[in-house]
Design a binder for these strands. Structure first.
Lengths: 185, 185
DNA sequence: GTCTATAAGGGGATAGAC
DNA sequence: GTCTATCCCCTTATAGAC
């Protein structure tokens, strides 16, 4: 919680790692790469983190927590598909490009499995599919979730910013894929 | 072209590599892993392939060619969104799980860039967006393409098979995301 | 065609000086 | 806190026997 955005060496390392993991993946990024990007040495990095994996954990911490909270909240508050997809898109927007990169990074899939990431997404998809999910409803729910996921790609290609107009367009597309055209037309 | 499906050692190596690349990614799979899976030695693998990259090329060859052909055909024949998405889904179904894994594998992104994969997908998205693409139409086209991409995940979770019913459900969801509800309802 | 043995280099991680 | 030097293992790739 402390100095979340302070310009400490530790945060510089995290920023460099986020950028490099997003570009080359976890396995494709070496500690030397991170050190060079920051302008320090490998041992310098290891002064701030016990291992490469600890850097990854520090990066994954916030997005995974955010996903967990959304799933918990959705189960309790009985969110509508629109609210669910909306919240998911906003969560992605906050986490940035590195999330989708790590998400698809097979070299850390074991860790993601340990944190039940796929299971939590499955829960969101179940909620989107509704109480009596036929196979068709599940397919549509998956489709809607996939549309929401593309938010991150669009954000990346718009300099890290998701305008309200584009956000709405994306949300509507997801809802239509789900089979629930938005009422507010 | 010759012995495409013959049970040669070379094909066994390719099958093992496909399976392991799909599971652990390209960088996360070693030649020793492939050799063990086949039941041979590292040097045995290197008798059939000059390098690890040559194995990757052999695996990527067909799906990239298939994508290129689709883009060419689409440009000439003026395919409808339904035809485009349909053909894309079928192409994915033929290539199998390894494609989406390699697709998202940042450790081989340079190679995919060299083969203009992203550019070709962009062309498909442009065709989906239509002749005078507003920003909104482009977002919807991206969404529809993303839905089609999920075909591969659904295929993976259905033992490699995409039933006509599920295929239709997916295609309809993609078309709705695009803003063109299928006429055949 | 397939093996064992080994070269060559990269990557994570640590020791110890400053 | 940060550096240089080093250790050790894993990986790609090759040499040469069978």
């Amino acid at each position: 919680m402390i100095d979340q955005n302070a310009n400490t060496t530790r945060n510089q390392i995290l920023d460099a790692a986020r950028e490099l993991f997003a570009k080359h993946g976890y396995a494709g990024t070496s500690i030397a790469d991170v050190a060079n990007q920051v302008g320090t040495s490998k041992a310098g990095v290891y002064y701030h983190f016990r291992s490469k994996e600890e850097i990854l954990d520090a990066i994954l911490d916030q997005p995974i927590l955010s996903l967990s909270k959304l799933v918990e909240r959705a189960a309790v508050e009985h969110l509508s598909p629109e609210q669910l997809l909306s919240a998911y898109i906003d969560g992605m927007a906050r986490s940035g490009k590195v999330l989708i990169a790590l998400w698809n990074d097979l070299s850390i899939q074991e860790k993601l499995t340990r944190h039940n990431v796929e299971e939590k997404c499955g829960q969101i998809i179940s909620l989107l599919a509704g109480p009596q999910p036929t196979e068709g409803k599940l397919i549509r729910a998956r489709a809607a979730f996939a549309v929401a996921q593309t938010a991150i790609n669009i954000i990346s290609s718009h300099n890290g910013y998701l305008s309200p107009e584009i956000r709405k367009e994306l949300l509507d597309a997801a809802l239509r894929a789900l089979g629930q055209p938005p009422a507010h037309i």
